[in-house]
Design a protein around this nucleic acid. Structure first.
Lengths: 147, 147
DNA sequence: TAATTAAGATTACAATTGTAAACGAAAGGG
DNA sequence: CCCTTTCGTTTACAATTGTAATCTTAATTA
Protein backbone atom coordinates (compact mmCIF):
# COMPACT_ATOMS: atom_id res chain seq x y z
CA UNK A 1 0.00 0.00 0.00
CA UNK A 2 1.28 3.47 -0.87
CA UNK A 3 2.24 6.00 1.78
CA UNK A 4 -0.66 7.41 3.73
CA UNK A 5 0.33 10.82 2.45
CA UNK A 6 -1.31 12.84 5.16
CA UNK A 7 -1.78 16.52 4.41
CA UNK A 8 0.96 18.00 6.56
CA UNK A 9 1.74 21.67 6.72
CA UNK A 10 5.42 22.40 6.36
CA UNK A 11 6.76 25.74 7.53
CA UNK A 12 9.36 27.73 5.60
CA UNK A 13 12.27 26.61 7.74
CA UNK A 14 11.07 23.03 7.75
CA UNK A 15 10.87 23.16 3.97
CA UNK A 16 14.65 23.52 3.85
CA UNK A 17 15.08 20.30 5.77
CA UNK A 18 12.64 18.44 3.55
CA UNK A 19 14.49 19.57 0.43
CA UNK A 20 17.67 17.99 1.70
CA UNK A 21 15.97 14.70 2.47
CA UNK A 22 13.97 14.72 -0.73
CA UNK A 23 17.10 15.27 -2.73
CA UNK A 24 19.20 12.67 -0.98
CA UNK A 25 16.36 10.21 -0.66
CA UNK A 26 17.42 9.52 2.91
CA UNK A 27 19.80 11.02 5.41
CA UNK A 28 20.92 10.87 9.00
CA UNK A 29 20.84 13.97 11.15
CA UNK A 30 24.57 14.55 10.81
CA UNK A 31 24.27 14.87 7.05
CA UNK A 32 21.25 17.14 7.26
CA UNK A 33 22.93 19.35 9.82
CA UNK A 34 26.19 19.57 7.88
CA UNK A 35 24.45 20.53 4.67
CA UNK A 36 22.08 23.04 6.22
CA UNK A 37 24.81 24.72 8.21
CA UNK A 38 26.42 25.57 4.88
CA UNK A 39 23.26 27.16 3.57
CA UNK A 40 22.02 29.02 6.62
CA UNK A 41 23.16 30.63 9.82
CA UNK A 42 21.49 27.91 11.78
CA UNK A 43 22.87 26.24 14.85
CA UNK A 44 22.82 22.45 14.97
CA UNK A 45 20.24 22.66 17.72
CA UNK A 46 17.91 24.59 15.45
CA UNK A 47 18.12 21.98 12.76
CA UNK A 48 17.53 19.23 15.28
CA UNK A 49 14.38 20.99 16.35
CA UNK A 50 13.16 21.21 12.77
CA UNK A 51 13.87 17.54 12.15
CA UNK A 52 12.03 16.65 15.35
CA UNK A 53 9.00 18.66 14.34
CA UNK A 54 8.92 17.11 10.89
CA UNK A 55 8.99 13.65 12.40
CA UNK A 56 6.20 14.56 14.80
CA UNK A 57 4.18 16.00 11.92
CA UNK A 58 4.67 12.82 9.96
CA UNK A 59 6.56 14.46 7.12
CA UNK A 60 9.67 12.41 7.83
CA UNK A 61 9.82 8.72 8.63
CA UNK A 62 12.55 7.28 10.83
CA UNK A 63 14.39 4.01 10.73
CA UNK A 64 16.63 3.16 13.65
CA UNK A 65 20.21 2.56 12.60
CA UNK A 66 22.17 1.63 15.68
CA UNK A 67 22.01 4.59 18.05
CA UNK A 68 20.79 7.01 15.45
CA UNK A 69 18.07 7.48 12.88
CA UNK A 70 17.85 7.44 9.13
CA UNK A 71 15.24 9.91 7.98
CA UNK A 72 13.23 9.41 4.80
CA UNK A 73 10.50 11.58 3.27
CA UNK A 74 7.04 10.49 4.13
CA UNK A 75 5.39 12.79 1.65
CA UNK A 76 6.04 13.25 -2.03
CA UNK A 77 8.02 16.32 -3.03
CA UNK A 78 6.16 17.17 -6.20
CA UNK A 79 2.82 16.69 -4.46
CA UNK A 80 3.90 18.95 -1.63
CA UNK A 81 5.03 21.60 -4.10
CA UNK A 82 1.86 21.40 -6.14
CA UNK A 83 -0.33 21.60 -3.07
CA UNK A 84 1.53 24.49 -1.47
CA UNK A 85 1.45 26.52 -4.65
CA UNK A 86 -2.17 25.71 -5.34
CA UNK A 87 -3.18 26.60 -1.80
CA UNK A 88 -1.44 29.93 -2.08
CA UNK A 89 -3.02 30.71 -5.42
CA UNK A 90 -6.47 29.62 -4.33
CA UNK A 91 -6.63 32.19 -1.62
CA UNK A 92 -6.26 34.98 -4.15
CA UNK A 93 -8.79 36.64 -6.43
CA UNK A 94 -9.73 34.20 -9.17
CA UNK A 95 -9.85 36.96 -11.71
CA UNK A 96 -6.20 37.84 -11.32
CA UNK A 97 -4.72 34.38 -10.97
CA UNK A 98 -3.88 34.08 -14.62
CA UNK A 99 -1.87 37.27 -14.62
CA UNK A 100 -0.08 36.28 -11.46
CA UNK A 101 0.87 32.97 -13.01
CA UNK A 102 2.09 34.75 -16.13
CA UNK A 103 4.28 37.05 -14.05
CA UNK A 104 5.71 34.18 -12.10
CA UNK A 105 6.31 32.07 -15.19
CA UNK A 106 8.21 34.96 -16.65
CA UNK A 107 10.50 35.11 -13.63
CA UNK A 108 11.09 31.40 -13.39
CA UNK A 109 13.85 29.52 -15.11
CA UNK A 110 12.23 26.73 -17.10
CA UNK A 111 13.77 23.92 -19.05
CA UNK A 112 12.86 23.26 -22.63
CA UNK A 113 10.74 20.35 -21.48
CA UNK A 114 9.03 22.45 -18.84
CA UNK A 115 8.07 25.02 -21.43
CA UNK A 116 6.82 22.31 -23.71
CA UNK A 117 4.77 20.73 -20.95
CA UNK A 118 3.30 24.10 -20.03
CA UNK A 119 2.46 24.83 -23.63
CA UNK A 120 0.67 21.51 -23.87
CA UNK A 121 -1.42 22.25 -20.81
CA UNK A 122 -2.32 25.67 -22.14
CA UNK A 123 -3.15 24.52 -25.60
CA UNK A 124 -5.49 21.96 -24.17
CA UNK A 125 -7.16 24.73 -22.17
CA UNK A 126 -7.48 27.12 -25.07
CA UNK A 127 -10.52 25.41 -26.56
CA UNK A 128 -12.63 25.60 -23.43
CA UNK A 129 -11.26 28.78 -21.89
CA UNK A 130 -14.08 31.14 -20.88
CA UNK A 131 -14.11 34.75 -22.03
CA UNK A 132 -13.44 35.80 -18.49
CA UNK A 133 -13.06 34.52 -14.97
CA UNK A 134 -15.16 36.37 -12.44
CA UNK A 135 -13.79 37.95 -9.31
CA UNK A 136 -14.67 35.82 -6.28
CA UNK A 137 -13.65 38.20 -3.54
CA UNK A 138 -17.13 39.18 -2.43
CA UNK A 139 -19.92 36.95 -1.10
CA UNK A 140 -22.12 35.18 -3.63
CA UNK A 141 -25.17 37.37 -3.40
CA UNK A 142 -23.11 40.51 -3.66
CA UNK A 143 -23.56 42.30 -6.96
CA UNK A 144 -20.35 44.27 -7.05
CA UNK A 145 -17.43 42.92 -9.06
CA UNK A 146 -13.84 43.88 -9.65
CA UNK A 147 -13.45 47.22 -11.43
CA UNK B 1 4.58 60.47 -5.70
CA UNK B 2 3.44 56.87 -5.95
CA UNK B 3 2.66 54.78 -2.89
CA UNK B 4 5.69 53.73 -0.89
CA UNK B 5 4.70 50.13 -1.47
CA UNK B 6 6.51 48.63 1.46
CA UNK B 7 6.98 44.87 1.40
CA UNK B 8 4.36 43.84 3.93
CA UNK B 9 3.62 40.26 4.85
CA UNK B 10 -0.06 39.48 4.84
CA UNK B 11 -1.32 36.43 6.71
CA UNK B 12 -4.00 34.12 5.34
CA UNK B 13 -6.80 35.64 7.37
CA UNK B 14 -5.63 39.17 6.61
CA UNK B 15 -5.61 38.29 2.95
CA UNK B 16 -9.39 37.91 3.09
CA UNK B 17 -9.75 41.44 4.36
CA UNK B 18 -7.46 42.82 1.70
CA UNK B 19 -9.43 41.13 -1.03
CA UNK B 20 -12.57 42.94 0.07
CA UNK B 21 -10.86 46.30 0.10
CA UNK B 22 -9.02 45.67 -3.14
CA UNK B 23 -12.26 44.74 -4.83
CA UNK B 24 -14.27 47.64 -3.51
CA UNK B 25 -11.44 50.10 -3.83
CA UNK B 26 -12.31 51.46 -0.43
CA UNK B 27 -14.56 50.48 2.44
CA UNK B 28 -15.50 51.34 6.00
CA UNK B 29 -15.27 48.71 8.71
CA UNK B 30 -19.03 48.09 8.69
CA UNK B 31 -18.89 47.04 5.05
CA UNK B 32 -15.85 44.85 5.54
CA UNK B 33 -17.38 43.17 8.57
CA UNK B 34 -20.73 42.60 6.89
CA UNK B 35 -19.16 41.03 3.84
CA UNK B 36 -16.68 38.86 5.71
CA UNK B 37 -19.30 37.61 8.14
CA UNK B 38 -21.07 36.14 5.13
CA UNK B 39 -17.98 34.31 3.97
CA UNK B 40 -16.56 33.06 7.25
CA UNK B 41 -17.53 32.11 10.76
CA UNK B 42 -15.80 35.15 12.08
CA UNK B 43 -17.01 37.40 14.84
CA UNK B 44 -16.99 41.14 14.21
CA UNK B 45 -14.25 41.44 16.82
CA UNK B 46 -12.03 39.11 14.84
CA UNK B 47 -12.41 41.15 11.71
CA UNK B 48 -11.71 44.34 13.63
CA UNK B 49 -8.48 42.82 14.84
CA UNK B 50 -7.46 41.90 11.31
CA UNK B 51 -8.23 45.39 10.04
CA UNK B 52 -6.23 46.89 12.88
CA UNK B 53 -3.25 44.71 12.12
CA UNK B 54 -3.36 45.54 8.44
CA UNK B 55 -3.37 49.24 9.25
CA UNK B 56 -0.44 48.81 11.62
CA UNK B 57 1.42 46.83 8.97
CA UNK B 58 0.80 49.57 6.46
CA UNK B 59 -1.22 47.41 4.09
CA UNK B 60 -4.30 49.56 4.57
CA UNK B 61 -4.44 53.35 4.63
CA UNK B 62 -7.05 55.20 6.64
CA UNK B 63 -8.93 58.39 5.98
CA UNK B 64 -11.00 59.81 8.79
CA UNK B 65 -14.65 60.22 7.81
CA UNK B 66 -16.48 61.76 10.74
CA UNK B 67 -16.16 59.34 13.65
CA UNK B 68 -15.04 56.45 11.52
CA UNK B 69 -12.47 55.44 8.96
CA UNK B 70 -12.44 54.72 5.28
CA UNK B 71 -9.88 52.06 4.49
CA UNK B 72 -8.03 51.93 1.20
CA UNK B 73 -5.37 49.51 -0.02
CA UNK B 74 -1.87 50.73 0.44
CA UNK B 75 -0.35 47.98 -1.63
CA UNK B 76 -1.19 46.82 -5.11
CA UNK B 77 -3.19 43.62 -5.39
CA UNK B 78 -1.49 42.18 -8.43
CA UNK B 79 1.92 42.97 -6.99
CA UNK B 80 1.00 41.30 -3.73
CA UNK B 81 -0.24 38.24 -5.58
CA UNK B 82 2.83 38.02 -7.78
CA UNK B 83 5.17 38.40 -4.84
CA UNK B 84 3.40 35.88 -2.63
CA UNK B 85 3.34 33.29 -5.35
CA UNK B 86 6.91 33.93 -6.38
CA UNK B 87 8.11 33.73 -2.79
CA UNK B 88 6.37 30.42 -2.33
CA UNK B 89 7.78 29.00 -5.53
CA UNK B 90 11.29 30.26 -4.85
CA UNK B 91 11.60 28.25 -1.70
CA UNK B 92 11.09 25.03 -3.63
CA UNK B 93 13.51 22.96 -5.68
CA UNK B 94 14.31 24.82 -8.90
CA UNK B 95 14.31 21.62 -10.87
CA UNK B 96 10.67 20.85 -10.12
CA UNK B 97 9.20 24.33 -10.36
CA UNK B 98 8.17 23.92 -13.95
CA UNK B 99 6.18 20.80 -13.24
CA UNK B 100 4.56 22.41 -10.22
CA UNK B 101 3.51 25.34 -12.35
CA UNK B 102 2.13 23.02 -15.00
CA UNK B 103 0.08 21.17 -12.41
CA UNK B 104 -1.26 24.36 -10.97
CA UNK B 105 -2.04 25.84 -14.36
CA UNK B 106 -3.99 22.73 -15.14
CA UNK B 107 -6.12 23.18 -12.04
CA UNK B 108 -6.73 26.88 -12.50
CA UNK B 109 -9.57 28.40 -14.39
CA UNK B 110 -8.08 30.75 -16.95
CA UNK B 111 -9.73 33.17 -19.33
CA UNK B 112 -9.01 33.11 -23.01
CA UNK B 113 -6.85 36.19 -22.55
CA UNK B 114 -5.00 34.63 -19.64
CA UNK B 115 -4.15 31.60 -21.74
CA UNK B 116 -3.02 33.83 -24.55
CA UNK B 117 -0.84 35.88 -22.24
CA UNK B 118 0.69 32.75 -20.78
CA UNK B 119 1.33 31.33 -24.22
CA UNK B 120 3.11 34.53 -25.17
CA UNK B 121 5.35 34.38 -22.16
CA UNK B 122 6.20 30.77 -22.84
CA UNK B 123 6.84 31.22 -26.52
CA UNK B 124 9.24 34.00 -25.72
CA UNK B 125 11.03 31.67 -23.33
CA UNK B 126 11.22 28.75 -25.72
CA UNK B 127 14.16 30.12 -27.67
CA UNK B 128 16.43 30.53 -24.66
CA UNK B 129 15.15 27.72 -22.48
CA UNK B 130 18.03 25.58 -21.19
CA UNK B 131 18.01 21.82 -21.62
CA UNK B 132 17.50 21.44 -17.91
CA UNK B 133 17.30 23.37 -14.70
CA UNK B 134 19.54 22.04 -11.97
CA UNK B 135 18.36 21.08 -8.52
CA UNK B 136 19.40 23.73 -6.01
CA UNK B 137 18.54 21.93 -2.82
CA UNK B 138 22.08 21.16 -1.73
CA UNK B 139 24.93 23.58 -1.01
CA UNK B 140 26.97 24.79 -3.94
CA UNK B 141 30.04 22.67 -3.45
CA UNK B 142 27.98 19.56 -2.98
CA UNK B 143 28.23 17.16 -5.90
CA UNK B 144 25.04 15.22 -5.49
CA UNK B 145 22.00 16.22 -7.51
CA UNK B 146 18.38 15.22 -7.69
CA UNK B 147 17.92 11.62 -8.80
C1' DT C 1 37.86 3.15 32.98
C1' DA C 2 37.34 8.15 33.01
C1' DA C 3 36.52 12.01 30.07
C1' DT C 4 34.67 13.62 25.80
C1' DT C 5 31.58 13.67 22.09
C1' DA C 6 27.52 13.07 19.59
C1' DA C 7 22.43 12.05 19.01
C1' DG C 8 18.10 12.79 20.18
C1' DA C 9 14.72 14.76 23.74
C1' DT C 10 13.25 18.40 26.66
C1' DT C 11 12.72 23.06 27.69
C1' DA C 12 12.77 28.02 26.41
C1' DC C 13 11.23 32.12 24.63
C1' DA C 14 9.76 35.88 21.57
C1' DA C 15 7.02 36.95 17.36
C1' DT C 16 3.18 35.98 14.49
C1' DT C 17 -1.36 34.34 13.78
C1' DG C 18 -6.21 32.98 14.52
C1' DT C 19 -9.75 34.00 17.26
C1' DA C 20 -12.20 36.86 20.21
C1' DA C 21 -13.93 39.52 24.58
C1' DA C 22 -13.91 43.85 26.93
C1' DC C 23 -13.52 48.70 27.12
C1' DG C 24 -13.87 53.74 26.24
C1' DA C 25 -15.75 57.38 23.60
C1' DA C 26 -18.79 59.25 20.48
C1' DA C 27 -23.28 59.42 18.18
C1' DG C 28 -27.96 58.76 17.68
C1' DG C 29 -32.64 57.78 19.53
C1' DG C 30 -36.15 58.67 22.46
C1' DC D 1 -30.34 64.53 28.65
C1' DC D 2 -30.01 59.25 29.43
C1' DC D 3 -29.64 54.75 27.00
C1' DT D 4 -28.01 52.05 23.39
C1' DT D 5 -25.43 51.19 19.50
C1' DT D 6 -21.24 51.53 17.06
C1' DC D 7 -16.46 52.29 16.23
C1' DG D 8 -11.90 51.77 17.15
C1' DT D 9 -8.50 50.31 20.82
C1' DT D 10 -6.78 47.35 24.31
C1' DT D 11 -6.18 43.04 26.24
C1' DA D 12 -6.27 37.89 25.98
C1' DC D 13 -4.84 33.52 24.93
C1' DA D 14 -3.51 29.24 22.58
C1' DA D 15 -0.97 27.38 18.51
C1' DT D 16 2.69 27.75 15.30
C1' DT D 17 7.18 29.19 14.02
C1' DG D 18 12.08 30.65 14.24
C1' DT D 19 15.77 30.13 16.92
C1' DA D 20 18.38 27.90 20.29
C1' DA D 21 20.36 26.11 24.98
C1' DT D 22 20.41 22.29 27.96
C1' DC D 23 20.03 17.61 29.35
C1' DT D 24 20.32 12.52 29.04
C1' DT D 25 22.30 8.71 27.39
C1' DA D 26 25.06 6.06 24.73
C1' DA D 27 29.39 5.74 22.29
C1' DT D 28 34.21 6.89 21.44
C1' DT D 29 38.68 7.81 22.88
C1' DA D 30 42.56 8.55 25.57
Amino acid sequence: MAATEVAVTISDAEWRVMRIVWTLGQADSRTIIDLLEQQHDWKAATIKTLIGRLVKKGALATAKDGRQFIYTPNIDEQTAMDTALQTELDQMCAMHRGTALAHVLEQTELSHNDVQELLNVLNKKLATAPAEVACDCLPENCERSCE
